[in-house]
């Protein structure tokens, strides 16, 4: 099993440091934002989502001859437990992988958190929210938006990695060709990511729709039609 994130030595020291600063800032913002997403019930759920992302990342699936891919999980985590918490889920997974499993270089941790945590969540959750705004409020829409979010998040992540490589790569390589190859193979990986994400979100929606962060508006409309409309769960408690 060679589950490989960005190793040490791909990106030079200054750019690795800069990516580290971006990652630290991103995680700090996520820590502040996650407070609003987490309560006594969703905190353990978020821990389980992080554990699920770790498990799913071990499952490399074949995408082309001699090439595999695995879940990144940013879009999935953001949809299930919220974007801020989603960033933290991926960051915890990457930290454990780098420290215990020698997967993903320690000096590349900032690059990995930026590319696989921040970018996948920003792109994935952005696409997800955007689509839900125009789609009908059904479970099928949530599943479809999850698929689309995940499928876009993976090549998006690959593209940002290539941009980082363009600035701080340690080897002289034709960047256009690298970008094309990275996006090409990661579109295929994105389809796998999208299938896993859509199936997982749909499964949770089927048994406990109230636990899917990204489907909150949907669930409230379906379940609380008899009560006066309220702005949010916490506001309903306060205004009652």
């Amino acid at each position: 099993m060679t589950d490989v994130h960005v190793p040490d030595g791909f990106i030079n020291a200054p750019v690795s440091l800069a990516a580290g600063a971006v990652a630290v800032a991103g995680v700090a913002v996520a820590l502040r934002g996650a407070r609003r997403e987490l309560d006594d019930r969703t905190a353990p759920l978020a821990g389980l989502v992080a554990a699920f992302v770790f498990a799913a990342q071990m499952l490399n699936f074949p995408v082309a001859s001699g090439t595999s891919g695995h879940l990144l999980g940013g879009a999935l985590a953001a949809i299930l437990v919220g974007p801020y918490t989603g960033v933290l889920c991926v960051a915890v997974v990457l930290l454990v992988q780098a420290l215990l499993f020698a997967d993903g270089g320690l000096t590349a941790l900032g690059v990995n958190i930026t590319v696989m945590g921040l970018v996948t969540v920003l792109v994935g959750y952005g696409v997800f929210r955007g689509l839900l705004r125009v789609l009908p409020r059904t479970r099928a829409s949530v599943a479809g938006a999850s698929f689309a979010a995940a499928v876009v998040s993976v090549p998006g992540s690959a593209l940002v990695f290539t941009a980082i490589y363009a600035v701080g790569g340690t080897t002289e390589v034709p960047l256009g060709k690298v970008a094309a190859a990275m996006v090409g193979v990661h579109v295929l990986i994105g389809v796998g990511e999208a299938l896993i994400t859509a199936v997982t979100v749909s499964s949770v929606l089927a048994v406990r729709p109230d636990l899917v962060y990204g489907a909150r508006g949907l669930v409230r409309q379906l379940e609380l039609r008899t009560t006066p409309p309220t702005e949010s769960a916490s506001a309903s408690g306060a205004s009652a």
Partner: peptide, 30 residues
């Protein structure tokens, strides 16, 4: 299930091999 996962290099690793940008890859410190 992880035992049955593909052992092929993942997308990043494969492109790095093909395009040669893994030339300066270092062993993991862990």
């Amino acid at each position: 299930v992880s035992f049955y996962a593909s052992a092929h290099p993942d997308g990043l690793e494969k492109v790095a091999e093909d395009k040669g940008f893994n030339a300066k890859e270092r062993d993991h410190s862990m």
